[in-house]
Simulated assay, not measured.
Amino acid sequence: MAAITYPRLIKRVRAVLIDWTFTILVIFLSIWIGSKMGVSTVTGKVLLIVLPILILDPMLVTFTGGTIGHHLMGIRVTRMDGLTRINIVAATARFIVKTLLGWFSFIFVLTTSRYQAVHDVLMHSIVVHKDPQGLPSYEVLTERPPKNDPYLYPSAWRRFLVIAAYWVLYTLIISVCSAIFITPTCLDHQRCGAPEDITSFIISLAWLLGIGWITVRGWGGRLYGGRKKLPATPQHD
């Protein structure tokens, strides 16, 4: 069996941007067709939005192995074996987690051994190349080698929840800093002077770097609440 190879993060980001574009266009088309057909109930209008979203992501992932963006980028979603497709339940849950977390989910690609985002880790899925033959070597990633340490790591769910809690706490701290150093006129009405623009940029950069640092440290079992531990040493009488 051929070795499983993984795409770079930028390729997955491009796939997401393609999917967003297609989804928005299809939703507008669905709403337009619905209006022409006389759909006027709240339920009908909701279905005109929800059905295209479900078809373009979880259903395509289940029955074809990927979204439109995935296929155009030459990648696909599989189970951990790199061959079989995930089922509709896992694909739907994966889509919901990806939607709720947004770009935060993809930070994990930089830390996990099989380049999994949060929605991949939780649903036991991976994203692989359809056909790596002919691709430049820098586009073809192989599994990161296992860590040679004796530690026991908390479960993926626990590490993720700890990281999410730190995200929230750090975001609150950054929000307080923004309220202290940036005037309400700048924050609420976007009328900012040059010094405030610089301060706002620095705070935004600090937030982004901090979120990345928290993610890397948390997944490595280095945050309080989700720390890695040495296995207990057997006691001998």
Rank of each mutant, 00 (worst) to 15 (best):
K45D: 06
T84L: 07
R85H: 14
I33P: 03
I198E: 10
I214H: 07
L110G: 08
Y224N: 08
A179M: 15
L100N: 04
V176W: 09
G102P: 09
A91I: 00
I180S: 11
G44V: 00
H124S: 13
R222K: 14
K36T: 02
M80H: 08
T199F: 10
G44D: 02
V89P: 02
R114A: 14
V216T: 05
H71Y: 13
D131H: 11
M1N: 12
V216P: 01
K36N: 10
K98A: 15
G212N: 08
G66Q: 10
A232K: 13
G212R: 01
T183V: 07
R79Q: 15
T185E: 15
W103G: 10
T215G: 15
D197M: 14
P184Y: 01
I18V: 14
H71S: 15
D81M: 07
M80V: 12
V162Y: 01
D19G: 11
V97N: 12
G226K: 01
L101E: 04
R94Y: 02
K228L: 02
F28W: 11
V216R: 03
K147N: 07
I27Q: 00
K11Y: 10
C192Y: 00
K229E: 15
V176N: 05
S105W: 03
T233R: 14
C192L: 00
V128W: 07
V216F: 03
P195I: 03
T183P: 09
N87D: 15
T99S: 15
L223M: 04
G221W: 01
G102Q: 09
Y166V: 01
G220W: 00
V13N: 05
I49R: 01
P132G: 08
I33S: 02
Y153H: 06
A194P: 08
A91K: 00
M59I: 12
I180K: 13
I33L: 12
D81L: 03
S200F: 07
D188Y: 09
